[in-house]
Design a protein around this nucleic acid. Structure first.
Length: 287
DNA sequence: CGGTTTTGACCGGCGC
DNA sequence: GCGCCGGTCAAAACCG
């Protein structure tokens, strides 16, 4: 997992392509990280502030008009895999294109397959990852409240990072969404959160201060520790449409407009990107 | 007591 | 084939 280009994605070209072109990138709390990372983003349009919190996201995708499957719980995982496979041009796993109607992709857990060795199943289910996106948050809190409840199922020390990465799964037994949380080794104040999959249910609400406005992602409050909302299946779609508009209208983006210089500036050429490799679509990066 | 967290073990993928 | 590494499992511990 040390491929400097995209360490975490090397096992599946479909996944690589997905993340390279379709990842959504969230950023909030300051407006400058992308430029500091030298990504090709249009700061003026991609980062608007709502109630003090940048609410926009960025992504590049050739599938922005593709409806994001909304789905019931029973099919959400499959729907997510559809998203993946449709994006994929490839692949080593041609069968993936039909995976949406086959087995539950959540069972693609390598470990679960390993625990109950069923080679056939294992082979048939090469790791099919669901759509992911990530965002960075400047926060003291690792596990940011996002309206969902998460159960931690693992923690690992990651190479070239002094901070462990935590793995969470949505507590809804029918929801397959996972997230990973780790702190930036460059700037420990930055939390990098990566979501994988789509929730098939509503938020559970916040114990303090209400519930995410599930149908108005631009209206979430400026609660300091709130990550971008992921409350409903439509959100992805909205994000993608928004980004499609932005990207098609202004593919090249100026550097900078930094109003906050807190962030460490990991170089794109850094050999170890860690999660950053997941969150930065290549098309957003400068050459 | 039920749900969550911790943590060591295990497995698969990948590079060499 | 081997070692490294990321990701996951699952038992035990913990907590409200």
């Amino acid at each position: 997992m040390n491929d400097p280009k995209d360490p975490d994605l090397s096992d599946n070209s479909a996944w690589r392509e997905l993340t390279a072109s379709d990842s959504d990138f969230f950023y909030r709390d300051t407006s400058t990280i992308l430029s500091e990372f030298a990504w090709n983003l249009h700061a003026s349009s991609s980062f608007t502030q709502t109630a003090g919190v940048p609410s926009s996201i960025t992504t590049t995708t050739s599938k922005t008009d593709q409806p994001i499957p909304t789905s019931s719980c029973s099919s959400s995982a499959a729907a997510a895999s559809v998203t993946v496979t449709e994006v994929s041009t490839n692949v080593n796993n041609p069968s993936a294109a039909t995976s949406s109607s086959s087995e539950d992709p959540t069972e693609n857990s390598t470990a679960s397959a390993a625990k109950t060795p069923k080679k056939e199943k294992k082979k048939a289910q090469k790791r099919i990852r669901q759509q992911r996106f990530a965002f960075m948050t400047k926060s003291d809190v690792d596990n940011l409240e996002d309206g969902y409840r998460w159960r931690k199922y693992g923690q690992k020390a990651v190479k070239n990072s002094s901070f462990p990465r935590s793995y969470y799964r949505c507590t809804n037994s029918r929801c397959t969404v996972k997230k990973r949380v780790e702190r930036s080794s460059e700037d420990p104040s930055i939390v990098i959160t990566t979501y994988e999959g789509q929730h098939c249910h509503q938020t559970v609400g916040f114990p303090r201060g209400g519930i995410f406005p599930a149908h108005d992602p631009h209206n979430f409050t400026s609660h300091h520790h709130l990550p971008p909302p992921l409350p409903n299946p439509y959100y992805y779609q909205e994000l993608l449409h928004q980004l499609h508009r932005e990207i098609t209208s202004s593919p090249q983006l100026p550097q900078s407009t930094t109003d906050d210089g807190h962030f460490a500036v990991p170089s794109i050429n850094q050999p170890e990107e860690g999660l950053l490799g997941d969150i930065v679509p290549q098309t957003m990066r400068n050459p």
